[in-house]
Design a protein around this nucleic acid. Sequence first.
DNA 1: GAACTGCTTAACGTTAACGTCAAATGCCTG
DNA 2: CAGGCATTTGACGTTAACGTTAAGCAGTTC
Lengths: 131, 131
Amino acid sequence: MEQKLWSISELADECGVTTRTIRFYEDKGLLQPQRVGANRVYNYQDKARLILILRGKRLGFSLEDIGEFLALYHAECDPAHASQLRYLLDKVQAKVKVLRQQQEDLAQTLQELTRIETECLSHLPDSEMPT
Amino acid sequence: MEQKLWSISELADECGVTTRTIRFYEDKGLLQPQRVGANRVYNYQDKARLILILRGKRLGFSLEDIGEFLALYHAECDPAHASQLRYLLDKVQAKVKVLRQQQEDLAQTLQELTRIETECLSHLPDSEMPT
DNA sequence: GAACTGCTTAACGTTAACGTCAAATGCCTG
DNA sequence: CAGGCATTTGACGTTAACGTTAAGCAGTTC
C-alpha cells in the first residue's frame, strides 16, 4: 500500500492556503517535507501537521506557540527524561487555561450575538420564515 | 447617585492594558471618552466597551471586526430602517459561524491536550497527588 | 520656584505573518 | 528546440497592533 503524496500547490489547494504560506511554515521549522530533486513532496503526516497548524491559527495561537504545541505530540512518545516532561506538562496546562478562558468568552459572545440576531429578525418582515 | 469615573491610567490598570493601547483604540474610533480640559475621563459605559473589546481580542478578532461588532449593540436599539438591519444580521450570522467553527476547534484541541496531560502525568513520579 | 507626577499629541520603531515580485531551473509538449 | 508551466530561492513590501521616545502643558508639593 503506497502512501499518497502531494506537491506543494496540491497541498495548498486542499488546505486552502497559498504555497507561500507553506514555504513560510517550513522556514519556521513547522514542516519538513521530503524532496525529490529540489521539489518538495508532502505525505499524509505532513498534511496532518499542516491541518493542526491551521487549527491552531484559527484559535489565535502564534506560529511559535504552535511549534511548541506540535513538539508535544512527539515528546509524548518519548518518555525518556522526566524533567522535559515536566516542562511540557507546564506548557500544556498553561494552554489549557487559555483555552478554557476562550471557551467562556466564546459562550458569552455567542449568546449575545444570537440575542441580537433574534432581535433583528423580529424587526424585519418575516421573509426569513422557512417555506 | 453619581457615576464612577476613571482616568486613563486607572482604567488601564483595572483592565490590564497600557494607556497607549487605550489611546490607540480611541484613534480607531472604538472609544470616545469625555474630556475635562484636555484629559480623558471614562465612565462605566466606556469601561464596558473596553471590556468587550478585550474579549473580542481574546477571541482573535481584528479591531476592525470589533468595531462593527460594537456597532451592533447600538444599531439594535434603533430599528429604523430594515436594510441596515439586514446588513447587520448578515454580519452577525457570519460571525456566529466563525465562532461555532472555533468552538469545534477548541473542543478538539482541549481533548488532545488533556490526553497528553494525563499521559505526561502517568510517566512522572506521583508528586502531583494532592496531599 | 524647582521638582515631580500625570497627562497630552506627534512621530518613528517593531514584530508577526505573510504577499509580491524577480530570476533561474527542470520537465513536458507540439 | 521553442514555448509553457510548476517549481525553486531570495529579497523587498505590507498590514495590524501596538511600543517607545520626545517635547510640552497643568497641578501640587517641598
